[in-house]
């Protein structure tokens, strides 16, 4: 049987991959994919803990909610990316640099 450690290891790798994608990729859609990886790592953790550590179904319910909300967040995120593309004609994150500090004197 697969142990709890194996699940936690996989979810850790997912989490770190997500963070690395967030930091290194310049494409906004790729960054959204990184966020999905982080959310999924948490969902995997919940299911694994639900089976091994806690004897209740809280974790299963929680991961279902995470899946639904991740979908909603991706939908809104992509809609905003489309809006961004319409005004700037690019989805490169470095182009999002118009908001910056302007100091007096």
């Amino acid at each position: 049987m697969i142990s709890l450690k194996a699940y936690l290891f996989v979810s850790m790798i997912l989490m770190v991959t997500g963070l690395v994608v967030m930091i290194s990729r310049k494409n906004i859609v790729a960054i959204l994919l990184g966020i999905e990886l982080i959310l999924n790592s948490a969902a995997l953790n919940f299911v694994a803990y639900s089976k091994y550590a806690a004897n209740n179904l809280d974790g299963h319910i929680f991961s279902l909610f995470i899946i639904v909300i991740a979908a909603a967040e991706a939908a809104v995120g992509l809609a905003i990316v489309i809006r961004f593309f319409q005004v700037k004609e690019t989805i490169h994150i470095d182009e999002a640099s118009e908001l910056r500090e302007e100091l007096t004197r």
Partner: peptide
């Protein structure tokens, strides 16, 4: 320009912090 850029920034920061919060919550649950 500014409004859609602010939306992008908010959504990306918000998504990643929510993800980290969930990761912490999952370990608290465990």
């Amino acid at each position: 320009h500014l409004s859609s850029e602010a939306g992008i920034k908010y959504a990306l920061y918000g998504g990643v912090t929510a993800g980290i919060m969930l990761f912490g919550m999952s370990h608290l649950y465990g």
